[in-house]
Computed example of a mutant assay.
Amino acid sequence: MPATAPRRRLTAALAVTAALTMGVTACGGTTKDSAGKEGGATATGSADPKAPLKKGLTVAYLPKQVNNPYFTTADNGGKKAVEQLGSTYKEVGTSSGTDTSGQVSYVNTLTQQQADAIAVSAQDPGALCTALKQSMKNGVSVVTYDSDTNKDCRHVFVSQASAEDLGRTQIRLLAEQIGGKGEIAILSAAQTATNQNTWIEFMKDELKKPAYKDIKLVTTAYGDDDAQKSFQQTQGLLQEHPKLKGIVSPTTVGIKAAAQYLSGSRYKGKVKLTGLGTPNDMRAYVKNGTVEAFELWDPAQLGALAGHTAVALESGRITGAEGQKFKAGDMGTFTVGKDGVVLLGKPTVFDKSNIDEYDF
């Protein structure tokens, strides 16, 4: 996992994913055999943890946004895992992080093309449900990763870490940096993003604790995972709230854009910034004093775990029922938890002391 693994070398594969897209011509007619899987996290179909892993499958990744460095890294991790398992990897998706209708169209196309499994990061918790349910009805194994949909609209959600851990620890990091008092703001991605909103709810709940009585959350801004908009939102936050002491941005695009703005402004070192970012994006800002510490998981491992989960589902080793176990290569054995959630692990905090140990 990120806290113990050696220095990562993922950059060599980053150019591959964008070229791997699927055409939109539908294959007609028949549906796939569902292999005994039942839809959603309440699945009770029989599973055989020793069943042979199927090869020659097509596993399609549908990220929130293609050509986003975070998803490029995650999906390349998935590509490596899927191909090592003897199956075919594909990536499709929109260039916008808010095009929910585009995501729906891709799910429908993948279902028509009889993909064996879909790994999707949902832009909206409900918008994909009808399409994903139809996929499952047609025998497609559906895994969500990074951002979930409703639990009855997929078999398994591969989560970065506990949503509660992620929400609370970001507030703890920022509180420590601002000395436990002052005004703070949140810079999020899309207003409908499932993962962002879940983390923010835990942030707000954490702030209710007596330890944070002197911290005031003044607003939540939305940059839509667009670098320019997130940059402008950061500027706006500081103009509208001149007493602002800190910003927490639970999105890799947002935190990088905020750091870029702060780094070139009079607020550098005065307004604290934390959230979720990649070491390669944030290294310069940590070293120049703009950012003290931030956190994340290894996105390549998240993508890889989504691939292993999809193949395990399609092979009948799991159905998505709570308590089922499966092996994910050299990542180890994972257990399906409540509501069909599989946790990658605890987030890692990056600062000057360790950031050069990571390369992703």
Rank of each mutant, 00 (worst) to 15 (best):
P2M: 09
A3S: 09
P6L: 15
R7S: 03
T11F: 14
T11Y: 13
A15M: 11
A15R: 13
T17I: 04
T21D: 02
M22H: 09
G23T: 09
A26V: 12
G28Q: 01
T31Y: 09
G36L: 15
G36M: 15
A47F: 14
K50R: 02
P52K: 03
G56N: 15
T58M: 11
V59I: 06
L62A: 10
P63Y: 06
K64L: 13
Q65F: 10
N67A: 06
N68L: 13
T73S: 12
D75S: 01
G77N: 04
G78A: 07
K80Q: 11
V82T: 01
E83M: 12
G86R: 06
Y89A: 00
K90Y: 12
V92Y: 00
S95P: 07
G97I: 14
G97W: 06
T100N: 11
Q103P: 00
A115L: 09
A117K: 05
A119Q: 01
T130D: 03
S135Y: 06
N138L: 00
V143R: 12
V143K: 09
T144G: 11
T149Q: 00
N150A: 08
R154W: 08
F157V: 06
Q160I: 13
D165R: 14
G167L: 10
R172Q: 14
R172A: 13
R172V: 15
L174E: 10
I178M: 11
E183N: 13
I186M: 04
S188C: 02
T194D: 04
M203T: 11
K204T: 07
K204Y: 11
K213F: 06
L217E: 05
V218L: 14
T219Y: 06
T220G: 04
T220E: 11
G223F: 02
D225N: 09
K229V: 05
Q232W: 07
Q239V: 08
E240V: 03
H241Q: 00
T251C: 13
I255H: 08
A257V: 04
Y261S: 01
L262F: 03
L262G: 01
S263M: 04
R266V: 05
K270E: 06
K272R: 02
T274Q: 09
G275S: 07
G277Q: 14
T278Y: 02
P279V: 14
P279R: 12
M282I: 12
N288D: 15
G289Y: 07
G289M: 13
G289H: 12
V291I: 15
E295D: 05
Q301W: 04
L302R: 11
L305Q: 01
T309Y: 08
L313H: 11
G316R: 15
E322A: 13
F326C: 12
G329M: 05
T333I: 07
T335Y: 12
V336G: 00
G337N: 04
D339S: 15
L343I: 06
P347V: 09
K352M: 10
D359V: 01
